Simulated scan of single mutants.
Amino acid sequence: MAVSPRRATLATVAASAGVSVATVSKVLNGRSDVAPATRSLVQSLLRQHDYVAPSPRRGETPGRDTVEVQFDKELNAYSTEIVQGAVEGGADLDVGVVISIRRPADRPGAWARELVGAGRRALIAVTSELTPGHLTALSRARLPLVMIDPLNLPRARVTSIGSTNFAGGLAATQHLLSLGHRRIAYIGGHATAACHQARMHGYRAAMEAEHAEVLPHYVQTGHFQYHDGVVGGAALLDLPEPPTAIFAGNDATALGIIEAARERGLRIPEDLSIVGFDDTQLAPMASPPLTTIRQPLREMGAVALRTALRLAAGEKIDSHHVELATSLVIRGSTAPVAAEENARRAG
């Protein structure tokens, strides 16, 4: 069957399928009152014709807008906060928010068409790795994209939302330095992740400003997971000269470090001080409650949603990258360096 090189319309697909335009519209909108065989035929022809639904013109309200918030992996404490912010923002604006987990797609074009065919006005990708192929597919489908904490920074200009990660890493390390710690380690996330790089550079900047040496093996990468804290914390604490304090790239990693310390009979914070990052629900429930850098995750989800809707409406945005402020939250996992350490230095 020959496919017209022109952009396909509902009428084009309906004529090919031998059904009415209303039937094709029902399939696109997920209506249940379409026979399975007809639905399968129409969906096949939509893909064959490379159909992309036109975006509603400004001022038109054909139905409730929906925005998809997509993750690469299972949800955790960090992503739940993002979702909460996006959903609350959607409720305020009468916009539906759909949450999904993206599986690796061999056909980015089909992936983008499915999003548009499902009626999505925009896509918010959280801590994702999107290839140039994915970005091209979204552009061709005219589907706006907003990224939150992307794991890789695309070469193309992509709108993204983040926080002041460098300032957060700086504040976390300065807090530990103010307590007298000098042997301070850092366990972060993906080596190429922009947020990890910024937090690590903030840590290094604070150490250098105080002429505190970053000892070999004191900087580690991971995946921002609890297991990274258990394994990485064990490696640090088993060094001949272990750190007296550790800055963790997120709260889950910090909890893993606490476990590694307990397995070695170390007390938090008397023997080891720990600072996390994010201030998720895990932080106040830790034992002891975790000192951490608050990342405004809910606000980031809400800002991403509003930005995505502005892009979908064809509005001009002020900046293609927005950073929201972080802040230090002091709880019970940090304390002044032990007197024995001060005596060792003096001797």
Rank of each mutant, 00 (worst) to 15 (best):
S4P: 00
T12F: 06
G18V: 05
G18A: 10
A22S: 14
S32K: 15
D33M: 07
V42L: 13
R57D: 14
V69L: 15
D72V: 06
N76Q: 08
N76F: 05
T80C: 15
V83R: 10
A86Y: 00
V87K: 12
V95S: 09
I101H: 08
A105N: 12
P108N: 12
G109K: 06
W111N: 03
G119V: 06
L123G: 05
A125K: 04
V126F: 01
L138N: 07
S139C: 04
M147G: 04
M147C: 11
M147T: 03
I161R: 07
Q174G: 09
I187F: 02
H190K: 12
H190V: 12
R199E: 08
Y203V: 04
P216G: 11
P242Y: 10
A245R: 08
A248V: 00
G249E: 06
G249K: 10
I258Q: 15
R264M: 08
R267M: 09
V275C: 09
L282K: 13
A283P: 00
P284L: 09
S287T: 13
S287D: 13
T292N: 14
Q295H: 07
G301A: 10
A308K: 05
A313Q: 15
G314F: 08
L324Q: 02
P336F: 05
A338H: 15
R345T: 13
G347I: 09
